[in-house]
Nucleic acid binder design. Structure first.
Length: 302
DNA sequence: ATCCAGGTATGCA
DNA sequence: TGCATACCTGGA
């Protein structure tokens, strides 16, 4: 018997200070979809009325675009205050992504210029580190829909209920108490062992993950890779989406395709591509990666 | 039915 | 170092 959940009124979410006075930021629906459901995060779903509904940390929220393209949010009444506080950092508000994008080498890179144009307003979320790690540990050779399914089951079966019908993801401490068999029952497959072993590792080291998130990129990445199931790509995703390390340049099959098709890097190894990416795109290579990724996925079916 | 999906760990040249 | 292969499982 579903209990009623009262939602707050819609309120504006200011992402970045407008670059020039008078010109407010307009977000295209497809770009919002890419931000929420393009593969950075795995817990946003479209509702019947076309708005988005998602859960992160102890927060539950709905998001939609106004007629003018401004971003609006609503939350369960009881959480409204928390969400008002935690939504801006989740969206990395104030980061100035427009300025960062302008700093990418699009002037000398026509393909990048095309990507920036196609997904104007694209941004990186700043998700809770632990949840980001969990999501990408589950991501190996799975499509986004499948990953979302796993994550949803993990939340529903092993995460605390925040408000009726909405569960947060289990913490790593909580995951340490879940048997591998039960993780497999959440459709994790061979990833269940990664999650279980990582949970065991983290359970004995309460501050390890957060401390790792504070380290410089190279050190943080090296430490993350100590975790079972965390290789180059997952480590970079965790650092990019969960620790705000914009120099991280995750190389997945889409990026390999993009580099081959758009930059002529035929037959390059992932590590070489990662190096090329960081050199060519610079300090915010991770932002460029998101643009390339979004463009390639849109271009190449699925 | 057969193949593949945002990888990683392991075993061999 | 570098390349092949196994690892789970649902869906096309």
């Amino acid at each position: 018997m579903p209990s009623f959940l009262a939602w707050s009124d819609w309120q504006p979410l200011v992402l970045d200070p407008p670059p020039e006075a008078g010109q407010s930021e307009m977000l295209a629906p497809a770009v919002l979809a890419e931000i929420l459901d393009g593969g950075q995060a795995f817990r946003w779903v479209r509702t019947a009325d076309g708005s988005w509904q998602g859960v992160w940390s102890d927060c539950v929220a709905r998001l939609k675009l106004s007629e003018q393209g401004a971003l609006l949010w609503s939350a369960p009444q009881t959480l409204a205050e928390t969400v008002a506080h935690k939504l801006p950092p989740y969206f990395a508000a104030g980061t100035g992504f427009a300025r960062l994008a302008d700093g990418l080498p699009w002037r000398s890179d026509p393909h990048l210029a095309r990507c920036l144009e196609s997904f104007r307003g694209l941004r990186l979320l700043r998700q809770p580190l632990g949840e980001t790690l969990l999501g990408f540990l589950c991501s190996a050779t799975k499509q986004i829909v499948q990953i979302k399914q796993m994550i949803e089951l993990l939340a529903r079966r092993h995460g605390r209920e925040i408000v009726p019908e909405f569960h947060r993801l289990p913490t790593w401490t909580e995951l340490a108490a879940v048997r591998e068999e039960d993780l497999r029952a959440c459709l994790l497959g061979f990833r269940a062992r990664y999650v279980q072993q990582t949970a065991q590792f983290l359970a004995g080291r309460p501050d390890w993950l957060e401390q790792t998130g504070q380290l410089p990129y190279a050190e943080a990445k090296e430490r993350l890779r100590e975790l079972p199931g965390v290789g180059e790509k997952v480590a970079d995703c965790v650092l990019l989406f969960g620790a705000g390390r914009f120099e991280a340049f995750p190389v997945d099959v889409w990026i390999i395709r993009a580099m081959k098709a758009r930059y002529g890097l035929e037959g390059w190894a992932p590590q070489q591509i990662a190096h090329f990416g960081r050199v060519h795109f610079g300090a915010h290579a991770g932002l460029a990666q998101q643009y390339l990724f979004a463009f390639e996925r849109k271009a190449g079916g699925r």
